[in-house]
């Protein structure tokens, strides 16, 4: 049986429909859309916090959404082990809500950047990689953000090192300064929480699920989540 997904929608979310489509039409799973004033239902296995400009990002990226009613239920789910993936603005929301370490600030180029990037997976198995996405594998995914510059204070870096999920790299997997599109510390493009069930990432896996649109590497992350839930259910 496939996983039951929830996609959280804030006013200003603009990748919510893309996420729903990727899940419903490509992954062919059951999806409920959860409005920011509501709660994520109990019987949900995976929660997606999509990209966009929640509440216009008028305070700091993700800051106002982090305070919205729905996030209380996301927090409860996260503590209970439900898989949570936050993409782009969703990553910013999870950081601002304290569900992930660090914070995302203005790109060091000072510009919004929309193009494909390469990512090296640092995940060693687990819900977002499983067996289909080995450590060191290089993925090609699009980014589209102005505030994707990941920052953690120096004293916290050692602690999060084990939880880095993806780093910006070149096509051959080399993590270089040149491959870093936004100034993120240590080229970090995605991190998980300590328990490993909450992932935030700036690149958009939901935009890379169809060959017609230029790539399918995003499917590997979403499929891993599916497989994980199926595995847990099978016990």
């Amino acid at each position: 049986m496939s996983a039951r997904w929830a996609v959280v929608i804030f006013p200003g979310s603009n990748c919510d429909r893309d996420f729903v489509r990727a899940l419903r039409d490509v992954l062919r799973v059951e999806v409920v859309e959860v409005w920011h004033k509501d709660s994520v239902p109990e019987a949900i296995d995976c929660i997606a916090i999509p990209g966009g400009f929640s509440y216009g990002d008028y305070l700091r990226a993700g800051a106002l959404a982090a305070m919205s009613p729905v996030m209380a239920s996301v927090r409860t789910h996260a503590e209970r082990g439900t898989l949570v993936i936050g993409v782009c603005n969703g990553f910013q929301v999870l950081c601002e809500a304290g569900l992930l370490p660090g914070v995302l600030t203005k790109n060091d180029t000072l510009r919004f950047r929309c193009h494909d990037v390469y990512l090296r997976s640092e995940l060693n198995g687990g819900p977002f990689a499983g067996t289909g996405l080995p450590q060191g594998e290089v993925l090609r995914l699009p980014i589209a953000h102005g505030f994707g510059n990941y920052y953690v204070p120096p004293e916290q870096r050692d602690a999060i090192e084990r939880h880095v999920a993806f780093r910006y790299c070149d096509p051959l997997g080399d993590v270089s300064r040149r491959a870093n599109p936004n100034g993120s510390v240590d080229n970090i493009a995605g991190v998980t929480n300590a328990a490993g069930n909450v992932l935030g990432m700036m690149p958009h896996p939901e935009r890379a699920v169809e060959a017609l649109l230029g790539g399918t590497d995003g499917l590997r992350i979403l499929q891993a989540m599916q497989d994980w839930v199926a595995g847990v259910r099978a016990g």
């Binding site: 603009n14 990748c15 429909r17 893309d18 489509r21 990727a22 990209g51 510009r111 919004f112 950047r113 929309c114 193009h115 699009p142 589209a144 958009h204 939901e206 935009r207 169809e210 017609l212 649109l213 230029g214």
Partner: peptide, 16 residues
């Protein structure tokens, strides 16, 4: 110019 525009949102863009 066009890299400052999110030219892929809505996931319909076949030719960028």
């Amino acid at each position: 110019i066009y890299e400052q525009y999110d030219h892929q949102v809505q996931t319909n863009t076949v030719v960028r």
